[in-house]
Amino acid sequence: MEYFVQQLINGITLGSIYGLIAIGYTMVFGIIGMVNFAHGDVFMLSAFIALILLLALTQMLGITPLALALFIVLILAMLLTSLWAWAIERLAYRPLRGSFRLAPLISAIGMSIFLSNLVQVTQGPRNKPVPEILNGVFTFGDPEGYTVTLSYKQILIVAVTAVLLAAFWYVVQRTSIGRAQRACEQDRKMAALLGVNVNRTISLTFVMGAALAAVAGLLFMIYYGVVHFNDGFVPGVKAFTAAVLGGIGSLPGAVLGGLLIGLIEVLWSGYFSNDYKDVATFSILVITLVFLPSGLLGRPEVEKV
């Protein structure tokens, strides 16, 4: 039982990170029907940005209160990652909008290769060990037997995710930005005719997705304590799986899918073996798409003849 609870805690923590990334995939797919392949690498880039900023603040500027430093890092990383996402959309995707369907996908794959290699070239190919922070844990259960540990990091991750998701939910549901997004999702041409600035709305969608990915990047860096230039691909595909599992286009679905994927991955490695955990995730992706293409919370698609 304790073991299970421990796995549950770990799964939810991991799932929060996947959920944050998944929102970027699901929003972009919802609004322009494109799998933003570079999103995983934007996430990886944001983890590096967060790492560099953290080092700069603590080592170069000597900001010692950790909470303050982390808060500044969070805000700056969100801003800088958003800037990247905005530039990527502007340069690599917007000129191809309305063009041949494969073109944006290839462009996105090219962007993904570019980003991971940019980080490799500028930051070096080696693993980057993150300075140890927030190492405290709470311990529950019988000290003689198996104990359940809940680390400060895990609390931080779940808390930050919950707060930001709430804020994000408010923006999408209650503001004119969110309304414009939903209008563009339904019918871009009509939205434009009604005075919605479609280009800006799409840019904003990328920016919002990237901001959440930056949060995920910071949390990922703190949680795993190491980042690598290749860390974009696998979490990216897993987050995409989460988005598909939850029903692509659905925001609550992305979070739910993220949590499920996190839990499945952790439980799989906890109870079966660590070896095939990625195979399990990919298999879920295949099974979902084949048998339940609209996901858990998505709208089913009716074929028109």
Partner: peptide, 25 residues
Amino acid sequence: LLALGLSFPILALRTEQNMANQLVL
């Protein structure tokens, strides 16, 4: 200006491991 914003942390500051296996900029 955009290029400045994009290149600021990732290009300007390189993370390197020092002798003590700590990251420095």
